[in-house]
Amino acid sequence: MAVITFTSDFGYTDHYVAAVKAKILSQNPDATIVDVSHGIEPYNIAQAEYVLGAVFQDFPEGTVHIVAVNTHGSKQGKYHAAKYKGHYFLMADNGLLSLITEGSPDKVVELHTDNPQMSFPEKDLLAPAAVYLAKEGDMDILGEQTTNFKQLLNRQLRLNDHSITGHIIHVDRYGNLITNITRDSVDTIAHGRTYTIHFGRETICRIHPTFNQVDEGDCCCTYNSLNQLCIGINKGHAAELLGLGFDSQVDVRFYPGA
């Protein structure tokens, strides 16, 4: 049986996470359930996309991902199963699927349901579907194939010969600011030139290997394990101290010569 992952905005104080897991285990006591996070901010599908998108490909192909964030985000009560890069995803039709798959899932079905306005679809619809798919069930049995799902667009970089404009796409638990500017984009535009990084009122002239390469309390930039440009303060909370957060603009400016 394939692994089932679980990502939600349920938090850790209520019974909701346990109820979904109980449903899965009641149908297959041998199921392997991995929590990605239940600390997603309520209804925050952008945060869910970043957190799950950062890790889902580390799981074996065939893994089933339940995403219970903003699950009542569709007035029509539509829920989908999708396949993308060898993985299965189960979620509401709230735009998150288009973000996770960059608008191009390999296959999508709209899940059959007799009660589209059910009060706990994560338990009553998504959990049984996850067990079925984890047992290598045919996705077509779960619903009708469709190309009609809510479309949202991730923030895109703006690039020219002398600059890159990006945005903060995630703030982690330590207050580090993760941007959508990648190592590849910087290397491609730089061509060996010097550059500076601008955010808020700050200007940084180099990218360090890790945050602890600067003195405690100092701001610096580094690349994370996904090769995304990150802004942090050594032993400090960058988001609070710099007054920046999700969607704040970050610029990289390049200068003539080496």
Rank of each mutant, 00 (worst) to 15 (best):
N94P: 09
H15G: 07
M139D: 08
S98W: 10
I197S: 02
N180A: 05
K107G: 04
I45M: 01
I164K: 04
D14I: 08
Q47R: 06
G11A: 02
S248P: 12
Y255F: 07
C221T: 15
E49F: 11
V108E: 04
L242E: 04
F199A: 14
I4S: 01
H198E: 14
T113K: 11
V109Y: 08
Q117M: 13
D93P: 09
K150A: 03
S185R: 01
Y88P: 00
S74K: 06
Y43G: 00
I24H: 00
F6G: 01
S98L: 06
G137W: 09
P42T: 15
H15R: 12
Y50C: 00
A81P: 08
N115I: 15
I207R: 08
I204Q: 08
P105N: 05
G200H: 13
A190R: 11
N70M: 07
H112S: 14
D14Y: 03
G143P: 13
F10Q: 04
E136R: 12
K150S: 01
I204W: 07
I207A: 07
L157K: 04
V55N: 02
N160Y: 12
D184F: 13
F246D: 04
H237Y: 13
T194G: 08
Q76T: 06
E49Q: 12
Q47Y: 08
I4Q: 10
E136C: 09
R253V: 12
I40P: 07
Y88Q: 07
A82T: 13
T32M: 11
V250I: 13
M91C: 08
V108T: 12
I169M: 09
I204L: 13
T147L: 15
G243P: 05
G192E: 10
N148C: 02
I168W: 07
N180G: 04
G245N: 11
